[in-house]
């Protein structure tokens, strides 16, 4: 009898505990709902409305039939991928170096890397104009050194856009990667060496696979953040790089209503989800399997 009563009490306590846990999670769920889920649903809803507010798939027809829109999505994915790859190629060795430094020195260097992330996009972008422009530092040096007679056109193309974006994106890789690298036990590296692995084999077979969680976190952050860039491709691309954000702005100005603009957003969302879903599976496999 007593046991039965206690069982009921324990069950009630357990229910209350679950309720309390849910209560604790509620503010976070509410924020995510309000900041992420609702806007996405709203965009989806707007994308199937015409100017009069009636249901239509015409906006998606525009998306599918206008070659320019598809090519913008391709450009967006291409530029983002390029930025991601270049950021990894630059950011990985940089972060590796940082992870080998004494922590106090590494912290100072990390602040240096984070600095561009803490300045406004506009300032960072125009700073590249100062560097790469006709009268910029690079061209002035080239002419002064006699390498070229006239200033080179370094700006207003894909390369300049990628450079400008990488500058901003490297910190997004460095932060999670640094945390992962710092957490790698040096015992693993000693173990690898004792088992016959030289520095190169130790890096590729042990250190690199162990740094993958930070690398993939940083890679995803960069890729997804790059998709939404607007000012940098506008200013440094000089009209030769049109990413989705710019095209959405054009669509808002050109078409009546939000239909086409939101359809473009949904198109990008779908393309990104497919690409990331694919990448996630590939990278997961990498994490599980020994190299």
């Amino acid at each position: 009898m007593t046991d039965d009563r206690n069982a009921a009490v324990h069950a009630r306590e357990a229910r209350h505990e679950r309720a309390r846990m849910l209560g604790l999670a509620l503010p976070a769920l509410a924020v995510i709902g309000a900041a992420v889920v609702v806007p996405i649903l709203w965009v989806l809803y707007l994308s199937v409305l015409d100017v009069q507010g009636h249901f239509t798939l015409g906006n998606y027809l525009v998306l599918a039939t206008e070659g320019a829109n598809l090519s913008v999505i391709v450009t967006t994915l291409k530029v983002s991928l390029l930025v991601t790859v270049v950021s990894v190629v630059i950011g990985y060795p940089l972060t590796y170096l940082l992870a080998q430094l004494p922590p106090s020195l590494a912290t100072i260097c990390m602040l240096g890397i984070l600095l561009p992330y803490m300045t406004s996009v506009l300032v960072r972008t125009y700073a590249w104009m100062v560097l790469l422009g006709r009268r910029g530092i690079v061209n002035t040096m080239l002419v002064w050194l006699g390498i070229t007679d006239a200033p080179l056109q370094l700006m207003f193309n894909t390369t300049a856009t990628v450079i400008g974006m990488v500058h901003v994106m490297v910190p997004l890789l460095a932060l999670p990667l640094y945390a992962t690298m710092r957490a790698i036990d040096h015992g693993f590296l000693r173990a690898a060496a004792s088992l016959g692995a030289g520095p190169v084999a130790t890096f590729w077979r042990v250190y690199f696979p162990l740094s993958l969680p930070g690398l993939s976190a940083g890679t995803f952050l960069i890729f997804v953040t790059s998709l939404g860039f607007f000012i940098t491709p506008t200013v440094l691309g000089g009209g030769r790089v049109t990413m989705i954000g710019q095209q959405i702005a054009t669509a808002i100005a050109t078409y009546d209503g939000f239909g086409v603009a939101t359809a473009l957003g949904v198109g990008l969302l779908a393309a990104t989800a497919i690409l990331l879903g694919f990448a996630m599976r590939v990278l997961r496999l990498d994490l599980m399997r020994a190299p």
């Binding site: 125009y126 104009m129 100062v130 422009g133 006709r134 009268r135 056109q153 700006m155 207003f156 506008t234 200013v235 000089g238 009209g239 030769r240 710019q246």
Partner: peptide, 20 residues
Amino acid sequence: DVAVWYTSFGQAVDLINAGE
């Protein structure tokens, strides 16, 4: 022949001031 296509007139003024 176009070095740069600008998107806003503010950007055009920036290009003028930067001597681009």
